[in-house]
Nucleic acid binder design. Structure first.
Lengths: 219, 219, 219, 219
DNA sequence: GCCTAACCGAGACGGTACGTCACGTCTTTTA
DNA sequence: TAAAAGACGTGACGTACCGTCTCGGTTAGGC
């Protein structure tokens, strides 16, 4: 998991120093990303998303795309980033409540990905290029993972979690079930109460033996 | 989860009637699949695996490939099938032990996938083609899932599992953590005792309230 | 004036040895050359003759063109070769008559070049690439020049020409005037009797002082 | 041979009225033309002379070029004009001597063109654009041709030339041989005495039958 | 022991997309 | 207003693959 100086998925930097020459148009940038969105929404299979077609749809020259991203994969990272909803604020009332919110946000993401037919497998495409996947991982996945680990750490200090547990593993116990449904079984649905169900079921075995704790679920 | 009459990933059938003309060479079949393997092992990125290159590597005409599979994705299904280790026999001593074996088999698959650099993301590629993914899902993923659910059902009947649990969810509780590590964090390792750790940690909260049960973990 | 082993302007050789694979289609070859002709006849400026447009016109893939010629210039050589009329037979009755025939053939070529609007300046294009021009020179210009020199040599032996003349120069004295009109003054016409006029005017000063000679022009 | 109001190959006129704003820099003008020269001298093939490359070489913006000329061809006319040596003064001692001087000037031009590798076929390029060629023809070729015809006319009046000759044809008789060598056979050399040799050889048949004439060649 | 249909490698075929480059225009800042 | 710089839409470049289609040649039954 190498940290990266210059994040991909962000437009290629223009020459540094003082701005010389005509500046890049933000409108063009938007037109490109939204062009990709439109095509995906129209049900165009990902395999048929060529740079040429994207350019045609966006009313833009190919060069304008290559000036900003080095190829399809980098562009897709930008598109995914744009489409993703912002991270929700944590309630902070308890570890359990924070975990539910985090998982709920993951569920939403999965729903968006599928129901609107956008990004159906842009992920798949990105994974095909290790470099790009690493970029997306470092700038989108890893930060959220750190948030989850922080929540768990606070929970352990508050006595909501047994002290002998490997937090990395515990994190995966929550995240894994949601992910396996979103990614491996795209026909199944992600029902409303799923986040609470997962958190409470897993948490049942992770609480300290005798602890008055903060709140016991009543679902 | 639709069941499918003609399984993809299996060579296209030759003309039905009585076998006339020269039969297809099994050697050619092997050469093609092993050609793909070799290329992947040599570190060729998946995106650079063209039919033409595969044919060149295998010393085979392009038509010989198209005669057997309809395209790259179908071929990849065959390759994945060939590379996957056989399913292990279940000990049957307890639900817990069976689950460890199942998870261990999943861990192995993940290790093979990565260490030999084969199939790193052939999955991703397959997911790009819904038809192909459905085929792989139905013939490779779903059966194993059914085995897992059977194990859980037996465990519930034996009193190793609380009776009020959604088995589908419980299954994901075990499978998810392993998968999230294998697929989302390809740089992390999958340590030896991981399967037991996951099973025991999750199981801690799923056992009936007062039941000495069959076996307590002794690891 | 380097002699060249493999003449350009001729389709690239297919692999030597025994013919393997599907043979190249002569129909495709014709379609390409005739496509170029058609475009030129339709008045398309030479600068707008792109390989892509030629391929589109001929109903042919770009690769089919590049398989045969290395680029536009080589293709043009082939087109010019196809469009050029065959060399006329020499009467052999006298040096003077032979020269008239040769010059007449040159005049015809110039007329074709201009009046049908074909090849208006394909020559110019070819000259831009020294390699290609050399190829055209060696296979189309030089042979005809040699014929002219042979005619002059026979004329000298027959006493139709003074013995002290540089034949190379004499050849240019006949060819030059025709060429300067065809190439430098494309608006002027090349009138019918021009060949005889040139030959007789030039020849007036080149005949031996006192020579019964074969035939004196009576025009 | 249409006369033309606005000569191409000359920088586009700046806005008419009183000069407002920053005046055009002559240094830029020079830098552009000399940039083209430099590239040609360095052996860059004509086909690789792009406006962008010329601008880069000259350290100039593209707009500065388009502000002055409408395109590559017009620019080339300016370059050729700059590179051409001035027309020599005629001695006026005899038609024969004048012709030798004119032809010698043509030979020089051919030598310059080749030996310095400049302008090898800028002519060819110009011919691709009929408009530009017409411009060059009218301002560079036609005037010299007129000079040649004047010389011949004076010669006829002086009795150095038969009176029944078509002067246009006679002109081509002198010019053609030199041109055919310079343009069609660029590998041959243009030896020192060539001009005299051509003039005297051709003139031998064109002189009045019985006329001691002005000067007999003494070379 | 032929006959013949289907296979085999090779490679040409019409297409599509790639990523680069140049076109001629435009939009910045600086002078 | 001209200057350099460089982004803009357009479109050609030459290459690589796509999936299909001939080629000459091979290899098994079925007759």
């Amino acid at each position: 998991m190498t940290s990266r100086a210059e994040a991909e998925g962000t437009p290629r930097p223009t020459a540094p120093g003082p701005a010389r020459g005509r500046p890049r148009s933000e409108a063009v940038e938007r037109a490109i990303v939204e062009g990709v969105m439109k095509l995906l929404e129209d049900g165009v299979p990902l395999a048929e998303l060529s740079i040429e077609r994207i350019a045609r749809t966006a009313g833009v020259g190919k060069a304008a795309i290559y000036r900003r991203w080095s190829g399809k994969e980098e562009l897709f990272v930008a598109v995914v980033r744009t489409a993703e909803p912002p991270d929700p604020p944590l309630p902070g009332t308890s570890m359990r409540d924070d975990l539910v919110v985090l998982l709920e946000s993951l569920r939403q993401r999965g729903l968006v990905t599928r129901s609107s037919a956008i990004l159906h497998n842009v992920y798949a495409q990105m994974k095909s290029s290790p470099k790009i996947w690493a970029s997306y991982h470092d700038t989108a996945i890893a930060p959220r993972r750190r948030v989850g680990l922080d929540v768990l750490r606070r929970g352990r200090e508050n006595g909501e979690l047994r002290a002998d547990l490997d937090l990395e593993l515990v994190n995966d116990l929550f995240v894994g079930p949601m992910l396996v449904r979103a990614m491996m079984r795209p026909d199944d649905d992600l029902p409303e109460g799923l986040s609470e169900q997962i958190v409470d079921t897993v948490l049942a075995g992770l609480r300290p033996v005798s602890s008055p704790s903060v709140s016991s679920p009543t679902s």
